[in-house]
């Protein structure tokens, strides 16, 4: 399977303050992003997501390990030839109009002259900024800037789109737009690699997710794998006078939710129907990505405390 991104024990340590104290922002990140997948990097604030992205984009030099984009080492600027990138909370040249802004990046990424105009037109329309093409970016709202930033990342029709927190600062409509764009790119066979706090969106659009906590990778896999969708138990909600078979989890008048082993679902439903009840809802007792992330944060804390305990 060809890889869009591969990192091997990638690390970044900052030296901060007068005493140049080391601060590990990213440690031994090893992951693989398949070509054509949509890959979400999730984690709490300060987990190292942006550090990882900036290192991959050549904005920082790695302190340890290596990484490759489309097989080219990230230390070579050629690795970013087929890449589009939007940084977190993008700031752009305020004196440029939306059109000039996209034209500048199109020229910089060597989009052919004939292809530039139609490409920019299409992108402005795609991110709903076509009415503002001649307005300087300095007059744009935060959400409009974010959309302009996404258009900028797509201007060279890249094979890999890297977006740092693309949903932040967007209203629900803007979020739906970004989600649609990500899915559209994926359908075209492009790879989308992005970080996000909004886990619902990540769950909805990602093929694969990596969880980063305190600079280290705490898990990688499909959303299904991470949240344990192959749950052994299923929660069933019925409208029934008596108690249905199974462990009662909740009761609200004649609405009862029971938890049963996944193998017993059919039998339970049959029994409820036989007793004159109705089925309202059946869903596997799986954790959400948010719960998985919170667990990992807790676990990281425990590991840290243990380590400090040993040191003490």
């Amino acid at each position: 399977m060809p890889l869009a991104i591969r990192t091997e024990k990638l690390g970044k340590t900052y030296l901060s303050g007068f005493l140049r104290r080391p601060f590990v922002a990213l440690s031994e990140l090893t992951m693989e992003v398949r070509v054509g997948s949509s890959f979400g990097l999730v984690g709490p604030n300060g987990a190292g997501k942006t550090t990882a992205i900036k290192t991959l984009m050549g904005l920082q030099r790695p302190s340890a390990g290596q990484a490759w984009i489309h097989g080219v080492a990230i230390t070579d600027h050629e690795s970013r030839r087929r890449v589009g990138f939007m940084p977190e909370r993008p700031y752009f040249y305020e004196y440029l109009t939306a059109w000039e802004f996209l034209d500048f990046y199109a020229r910089l990424t060597e989009v052919e002259a004939a292809a530039r105009r139609p490409r920019i037109e299409a992108l402005l329309e795609r991110v709903n900024l076509d009415r503002f093409r001649h307005v300087p970016l300095g007059k744009f709202s935060k959400g409009m800037l974010q959309r302009a930033g996404i258009a900028q990342a797509l201007v060279n029709d890249p094979d890999l789109v890297v977006l740092d927190e693309p949903m932040s600062g967007l209203d629900p409509l803007g979020r739906v737009l970004v989600r649609d764009i990500i899915q559209e790119e994926r359908r075209k066979g492009k790879t989308v690699f992005f970080s996000s706090h909004i886990l619902g969106d990540v769950e909805a659009i990602c093929d694969e997710v990596a969880i980063v906590v305190a600079g280290t990778l705490r898990g990688q896999g499909t959303v299904r794998e991470l949240i344990g969708q192959t749950a052994d138990e299923v929660d069933c909600t019925f409208v029934i006078a008596g108690d249905p078979p199974g462990r009662v989890m909740r009761r609200d008048g004649d609405r009862v939710t029971v938890r049963v082993p996944s193998g017993n679902v059919d039998a339970t439903i049959d029994a409820v129907r036989a007793a004159g009840g109705h089925v309202l809802e059946v869903h596997p007792n799986a954790r959400t990505l948010e719960e998985v992330l919170l667990d990992e944060v807790e676990r990281a804390k425990l590991v840290n405390e243990k380590r400090l305990g040993v040191l003490a």
Binding site: H77, L108, T109
Partner: peptide, 13 residues
Amino acid sequence: KKTIYTLASKPLP
């Protein structure tokens, strides 16, 4: 102004 992020990430030395 953080415009360097989009600039320095482009494929040029």
